[in-house]
């Protein structure tokens, strides 16, 4: 096998690992954001968020 083969394989492996890390982080963020929105739609809010709003009204 030529040297170029090992170089290409190394950069391909790097691309895959970086893509998996970036993809996983972004998808995880999206999933948590969706869960928070669903909870908010169901009327469940953070206690501190509810307090902030109450303070604003007062």
């Amino acid at each position: 096998m030529t040297h170029a083969f090992y170089v290409a394989l190394s950069y391909a492996a790097s691309g895959i690992v970086v893509a998996v890390l970036v993809g996983w982080t972004l998808l995880d963020g999206r999933a948590q954001q969706r869960a928070l929105k669903e909870l908010e739609a169901a009327g469940i809010r953070r206690r501190s968020a509810a307090r902030d709003q109450a303070e604003k009204k007062a």
Partner: peptide
């Protein structure tokens, strides 16, 4: 993401 995850689980418990 982890902060959000903990908020989700806290709100689910609530």
């Amino acid at each position: 993401n982890e902060i959000w995850r903990r908020r989700v689980s806290a709100q689910r418990r609530l």
